[in-house]
């Protein structure tokens, strides 16, 4: 069941990204606007760490995804051996990075009035005002990814305590799998939208 859902959802998201990339208009906004909004031109240690945390989180997420999903999707096997060790070893790096990112980037990912209006329009199934760079998508996926990281992490850590029995462990594993899949999908969309926005604003 899980491999099927994974294949379908990954396929749909990738296809959606490709279609969006082809279909969506690529009007460029004022140069530097987006860059300014996403990354301040600060060169302090915090800013450097802030810049380091994102690729580190992304890199560890990719490795976590590969170690966690490849064996399962291609060979129907659960992680064992060195793969498992690498997966478990990188997990805290990823979670710590996320903690750092949510603190340092959280404020910039707050929805502003424009975003709220867009969100309101989308919820009312109206076509949103197309003026300005599309920020709503990457902000929402950011918060979604941050939210999903909590069950994805806790589901595994709690399994290491003598709290849950076999059934509980299986439920935790299930929760870990599905929340990780959702986290990966959210991160994929987020990264795509951020890259696209940067490209549009450069």
């Amino acid at each position: 069941m899980f491999p099927t859902i994974s294949w379908v959802s990954l396929g749909l998201v990738l296809a959606g990204i490709v279609v969006h990339c082809l279909v969506s208009p690529s009007r460029r906004s004022a140069k530097g606007e987006a860059a300014k909004s996403i990354s301040e031109g600060d060169r302090s240690l915090l800013a450097k760490l802030k810049c380091l945390a994102c690729p580190l989180a992304l890199g560890s997420l990719i490795v976590l995804f590969l170690t966690g999903f490849v064996g399962r999707l291609f060979f129907g096997e659960l992680m064992t051996g060195y793969t498992l060790m690498l997966h478990v070893g990188l997990a805290p790096v990823f979670v710590v990075c996320l903690g750092f990112i949510v603190i340092t980037w959280g404020h910039q990912c707050l929805l502003n009035d424009t975003d709220r209006q867009r969100l309101g329009s989308l919820l009312r199934l109206n076509k949103p005002d197309s003026g300005g760079p599309p920020d709503l998508g990457w902000k929402l996926t950011f918060w979604l990814a941050m939210f999903l990281a909590v069950p994805a992490s806790l589901s595994m850590v709690l399994g290491m305590f003598p709290i849950f029995g076999t059934h509980g462990q299986e439920t935790l594993l299930c929760l870990h799998q599905y929340s990780s899949l959702a986290l990966t999908l959210a991160a994929m969309i987020h990264v795509y939208l951020v890259i696209r926005r940067k490209a549009l604003c450069s």
Partner: peptide
Amino acid sequence: KVVVILSCILL
């Protein structure tokens, strides 16, 4: 366990 739990609490 400590690092992940603390990070999760922070998140």
